[in-house]
Computed example of a mutant assay.
Amino acid sequence: MQYTRFCLRVEHLPPCSMADSNTSQFTNPSTFILLGIPGLEWAHVWIAIPFCTMYVITILGNFTILFIVKTEPSLHEPMYYFLCMLAVTDLVLSTSTLPTILSNFWFNSKEIDFSACLAQLYFVHSVALIESGILVAMALDRYVAICHPLRHSTILDNALVAKIGLAMVLRGAILILPFPILARQWLYCRTNIIPYTHCEHMDVVNLACTDIHVSRNYGLFVLLCGDTLDMFLIAVSYILILRAVYKLPTKDARLKTFGTCTSHVCVILAFYTPSLFGSLTTRFGLNIPLHVYVLFANIYLLVPPMINPIIYGVRTRQIRDRLLRLVTLKGT
């Protein structure tokens, strides 16, 4: 495939010179070219192996969680309903990107249609925002279970759980909708080459040669109204939980009660740490090597969906016991 000479307009790369821009001008592209991990092209085939392994584990683990909760009546509770929502979002988030990445790395299939690229960035960001909302809902469940245990079943009944789930889906779908709509309006006259493994919002709009402050500001607004607000609500929930836990009479009771939250805390850390790192480095252009940024930014697409079912499978006794029974039955 013949690539035209280009210069990328991204904050963490050197600015384009006038000579470079004059040699690579063209109208809006029908396709984008995904470079994968710039500087590590020689290792793409090998990097794809752990990526594929994590994807397989993600599919098996999350489908196992869905199957166990569906077939075990004792798990038909708000906590496990939210866990099922988390499993579905993890599956969608991984499947919306990993096939593109593996196709690029193994078959050198770098081209992606302009509309498909916008659709991919919409799914990546909307599903990630939905997952963030589900983590807030799970924090609410833990707060009610610990601070109001006798009213847990009446406060969080099935109807409210369904409404919370629907609200999180609508929030993610509606808030992210302007991303592809705005991105389609910009003029991409310098290059159609994206130094990334898949299409994400800022990596696409940073290639535009027009003023993109509307997209940039709206992206910051979504970050504040999405992850930042969600982390604040989760922090408030756990402050109230810790207050209730430390009022318990014995140390064993405090450890046992807070132990019901450890799985959720681990999932929160696994999700928000790489997500915030990717968002902030893209917007503020922190001085890190591009291949390190791309590798780290892919972590939130690969690692949380893979480890979430493992964390809950290991840390949640009901799921662990049910899984052991399934394995035992198959072994006999």
Rank of each mutant, 00 (worst) to 15 (best):
A253I: 00
F105C: 04
L34N: 03
T64P: 00
M138I: 13
L229F: 06
S96G: 12
K163M: 10
N287C: 07
D90R: 04
R283D: 09
L220D: 04
V265T: 04
P304M: 05
L240Q: 12
S74K: 15
N28E: 03
P305A: 06
A87H: 01
F67K: 15
I194K: 01
S279Y: 09
P178I: 11
R283M: 15
F232N: 05
R320Q: 10
P73C: 10
L177P: 00
I101F: 02
L242S: 08
A119W: 13
P29S: 11
I299T: 11
Y238G: 00
I68E: 02
Y3P: 01
S74H: 11
L207Q: 06
C147T: 05
L175M: 13
L187H: 13
R190W: 09
A297N: 07
D20M: 13
S96I: 05
Y80F: 15
W106F: 13
T23D: 11
K251C: 12
V205E: 03
V56Q: 04
L13I: 06
H125F: 13
F67Q: 09
V222H: 00
V245Q: 10
R315K: 12
I130M: 14
A137Q: 01
Y188D: 02
L329G: 00
H201P: 06
Q25C: 03
G165F: 07
L8P: 02
T210I: 12
L323T: 09
G331C: 09
Q120S: 02
A173S: 14
A244W: 07
Q120Y: 02
D90S: 12
P78K: 05
L150Y: 07
C7K: 04
